[in-house]
């Protein structure tokens, strides 16, 4: 177990979710001798720069060969190892998507694929390096659990949970160093369960990844405008916490999803699928990255440009709420 202390939470926020991931996996690997960590030439980028030195028997850098990384991971998992396989989000999800489907989903093997620096956190690197569709893709694979932590603390909790989980999973890490924490102390995290991080009456915001904190910030402005919001951190995007969604749709006038991911196929789409079956009355507003390749820029500029920073979220939510009539 990792200690969720003030010092640790502060440190993790300084170093980002992806570095936090590597830091805690390095520590947890001592408790999991059957853990194997595979990277596609991204050890340092994932905070695993010293992992190979600390755990030489549990580490393999396969080089820039993501498809082969997942195939090797599958073979190790078939032989009883618990495997984490790590690359940048677009390559971990898209480049080897079919390997995830055939070798992890179809054979239901115990591999967690970790997509680091997802969303637009790669900023000036441009669209090749953004994770725009890595909730959508793994979500279509049977047996796959899709996890998208809100902050570094939740990244730690998710890694601990996935080490105990059996079956294939995709862990999507968003945000950059300096992102503020949503969770400052220990809490009860469970895969498949959303956490209510704010209680309100008018609007239910169902957010994932970095958008949980942005939503929290947005509600300060919304509160002043007289709009009271509940916020759920939907940290597991598959399977969805339908109990939380039932409450969101049945007890609010508007449900808003917020994600640093394409508006197509991600959390918003998953919630819309729920709505199609269960609640036709309550209006749903889907907020995410538009269906386009935008210009590159620094992370904060990107969020602002794409309408995902707190003030834009607040405006978009207020507008949707006022349009309810």
């Amino acid at each position: 177990m990792i200690n969720i202390s003030n010092e640790n939470v502060a440190l993790w926020s300084r170093i980002s979710s992806r570095k936090t991931f590597g830091l805690v996996l390095d520590e947890l690997a001592y408790e999991y001798p059957d853990l194997m960590v595979l990277v596609a030439d991204v050890a340092d980028s994932a905070g695993l720069g010293e992992f190979g030195e600390h755990h030489p028997e549990q580490f393999l850098n396969v080089g820039i060969a993501e498809q082969n990384m997942i195939a090797i991971a599958a073979g190790l998992a078939k032989s009883g190892y618990k495997v984490f396989a790590v690359s940048f989000a677009p390559f971990a999800s898209m480049r080897c998507f079919e390997v995830l489907r055939t070798y992890l989903g179809y054979m239901n093997l115990d591999v967690t694929v970790v997509g680091i620096a997802s969303g637009v956190s790669m900023g000036t690197a441009g669209n090749t390096h953004y994770g725009l569709e890595d909730l959508a893709l793994p979500r279509t694979i049977p047996n796959m659990t899709v996890v998208s932590p809100a902050d570094c603390t939740e990244t730690v909790k998710a890694v601990e949970a996935l080490l105990e989980h059996k079956g294939p999973a995709y862990l999507r890490l968003t945000g950059v160093n300096g992102n503020q924490p949503v969770y400052k102390e220990d809490y009860d995290f469970r895969l498949g369960r959303a956490a209510k991080v704010r209680e309100g009456t008018d609007v239910a915001i169902v957010a994932t990844g970095t958008m949980v904190y942005e939503s929290l910030r947005a509600t300060r402005k919304l509160q002043k405008e007289g709009i009271s919001c509940t916020i759920w951190d939907m940290s597991t995007v598959k399977p969805l916490d339908e109990k939380a969604l039932e409450e969101a749709f049945d007890s609010h006038k508007l449900v808003v999803t917020a994600e640093e991911h394409s508006v197509i196929g991600g959390l918003g789409a998953a919630v819309a699928e729920y709505k199609a079956w269960h609640n036709q009355k309550t209006r749903l507003e889907i907020i995410g990255l538009p269906d386009s390749f935008g210009k590159a820029g620094a992370y904060a500029w990107m969020l602002d440009q794409q309408g995902l920073s707190a003030r834009h979220l607040a405006d978009r939510i207020a507008e949707a709420y006022q349009n309810l009539g």
Partner: peptide, 17 residues
């Protein structure tokens, strides 16, 4: 059935052994 992946899978099995 999906071609080109079995050798990587075999590496995983052989490495485990």
């Amino acid at each position: 059935g999906s071609l080109g992946l079995g050798l990587g899978f075999g590496i995983g099995l052989a490495l485990a052994d």
